[in-house]
Each structure stands twice: as C-alpha cells, then as structure tokens.
Amino acid sequence: MGSVKRQLCAEPSLDVLLATPGALCKALRKRMVTLEQLSCLVLDEADTLLDPTFLELVEEVLAHAPLTCSPQDLADPWDVKTQLVVVGATFPGGLSRLLSKFSDIGHFVRLVSQSLHCLLPHIQQKFVRIKGRDKVSELLQLIKVRSPSSGALLVFCNKAPTVNWLSYILDNHKVKHLRLQGQMPAAMRAGIFSAFQKGEKDILVCTDLASRGLDTSRVELIVNYDFPDTLQDYLHRVGRVGRVGSQKSGSAISYVTHPWDVDLVRKIETAARRRTSLPGMKTSIDEPLPETDLTQTAKQQ
C-alpha cells in the first residue's frame, strides 16, 4: 500500500480514482480515502467483479458509498449521493438482489446495445478440429507463416499452468512473446499489459484475464488454444479483435479438441449465421450470487 499512499498524497485533489476492489478496500480500511463525497461509482466488467473472488470486496465498497435511492436524491447539492453505474457485456445472476441491499433497484435505468451478445459480422471465425497433441505444432506453423506486418496475436489458454508450459515451448522455438496469467503478482501483470499495448512484443499467451479490460486496436488475431468453457468466455475473447480504431477487422481461430466443445461451436455458428444473440446469455435476476460474510450477517440479523 506504500505506492498507493504516495500517489494519493501527491495528488490529494483528484477528480477520478481508478482502482481494483482489493486496493480500494485496503485504502478505505486505512482511511486513506473516503467515499462520503463520491458523486459516481462505476463497476466495470460486472460479471468479473461479482464472481466469488471479488464479491465480498465489492460489497464492502458499496457499503462505504452513500448510494442514491432515487433521482430526487441527486437534486440536493448539499447532500451528496453516489450514482451507481454497472457496466458489462454479461451480467451475473442475482445482480439485482445484491444491488437492492444498497439502493432501490426500481430506479435503475437499463441501457442495452442492439448488438449485445451478438458476434460482430466483420470478425472472421474459424474452428479447427484437432487432436490435443497436435495443437502445439499447429500454433507454431501459424506463427511461422504470419506476415511481419501482421498485428498483435492473443493466444488464450484456460489455465495458468498451460500458459506457463506453452510459453516454455515458444521460448524453445525462439518465438518472442509475453505471457500473462492470474497467479502473477499484480505489479507484474500491469507491466505485461503495458508492454503489450506499447508493442514491445506482438504475441501474448494468456488466460481469460486478458479477455476483459484489454482495450487495444493492435490485436488482429486471437487463437483459442484451449476452447473456452462457456459462450460468455468466447464472446469476451473474440471481443478483443475488431475494436474501435483497428485497421483490420480481425480474426478468431479456435482449436476444438473435445466432444463437449462441439455443442458450443454449433451454437456459435448458428448465432453467427442468423445474426442473433448467443443463446443462454440472459441471466435470471432471482438466481443468487455466492454468499459472503456480509450476506450471511444480513441473514442472521
């Protein structure tokens, strides 16, 4: 927290604070910051923030903010209330139940993009049925034939050990790349993100950590070395190409190795052909989120 404290002391009158849930909670506990005069709180990538890893931290942050319960609360300049904005391509089940503990869910306004949960038509998608033992050679051949002028490449793996192992293979073949996975320290991850966005290396081997929040126009190709477990994960991964500012539309190549992957492929191909939303993306607001210490305490009371 030393670096955070130095930043806050150096810029005591900042108008915008960008923070992870963990760092913000630590700062709140140590009274390094206060949310009493906060006018707007944005929860970006809501599906990630409200998974079991961050849920309790997010609840703690919400409990510190004087959240508005109605539009009338925003009219009094002498009694500052916090307007809550929740952003995401997919929302987890139970979101309304969580928010209703801190605000009046009936006054939330929902804004929906017409292309929500739809695969963008300008992104070329290719599915390669392949045996697991052949994936490495297929990836190496793909990297070998890439043009030097090609944009950046993201290689997605489902687990951190696979990222480490594949990175070792690429090192043996003298392939310059970066690797990124959630078991790395936060400072290291931030440095890798920055290096990739600056173009220091054009290949990033990563977990789904890079499928959310990585906003760069450099990526022209993603490879699902491991096929994603869910349609939500596929949507987020493919969303890293063809972004605003990109010079090319982008492509996605997925290695399909397991029989259970085929069903997801059929659903993706059907949605792309019909230009419709991916199936099963709507979540019931009545479906509960994982319990935390705060929710258990509320039940006991």
Score class of each variant (00 low, 15 high):
P92C: 03
G93N: 04
G93T: 02
G94K: 05
L95D: 02
L95Y: 06
S96G: 12
R97E: 11
R97F: 01
L99M: 09
L99A: 03
L99G: 04
S100K: 09
S100H: 13
K101C: 15
F102Y: 15
F102N: 01
S103L: 06
S103D: 05
S103C: 10
I105W: 14
G106V: 06
F108I: 09
F108E: 09
V109W: 02
R110V: 14
R110T: 15
V112M: 07
S113W: 07
Q114N: 12
Q114Y: 10
S115V: 09
L116A: 13
L116R: 15
H117E: 07
C118R: 15
P121Q: 07
P121I: 06
H122Q: 13
H122I: 01
H122W: 08
I123R: 05
I123C: 03
K126T: 15
K126A: 10
V128F: 09
I130N: 05
R133I: 08
R133H: 11
K135R: 15
V136E: 10
V136T: 13
V136K: 11
S137G: 00
L140N: 04
Q141C: 08
Q141R: 12
Q141A: 13
I143K: 00
I143S: 02
K144F: 12
K144L: 10
V145F: 09
R146E: 09
R146P: 01
S147C: 11
P148I: 07
S149W: 08
S149A: 13
S150H: 11
S150V: 01
G151H: 08
A152Q: 10
L153K: 00
V155G: 01
F156V: 01
F156K: 02
C157A: 08
C157H: 01
A160L: 02
A160T: 14
N164I: 13
N164A: 14
L166S: 04
S167Q: 03
S167L: 02
Y168H: 12
Y168A: 11
I169S: 00
D171C: 11
N172A: 15
H173L: 07
V175A: 04
V175Y: 03
V175R: 08
K176Y: 06
K176E: 14
L178Y: 03
L180M: 15
L180K: 03
Q181W: 12
G182N: 02
M184C: 06
M184E: 05
M184I: 02
P185H: 05
A187N: 10
A187C: 08
A187R: 11
R189Q: 13
R189S: 08
A190W: 01
A190C: 04
S194L: 11
S194V: 03
A195N: 08
A195V: 01
F196W: 07
F196I: 05
F196E: 04
Q197D: 05
G199W: 05
E200I: 07
E200L: 14
K201W: 06
D202Y: 02
L204K: 03
L204N: 05
L204F: 02
V205W: 03
C206M: 03
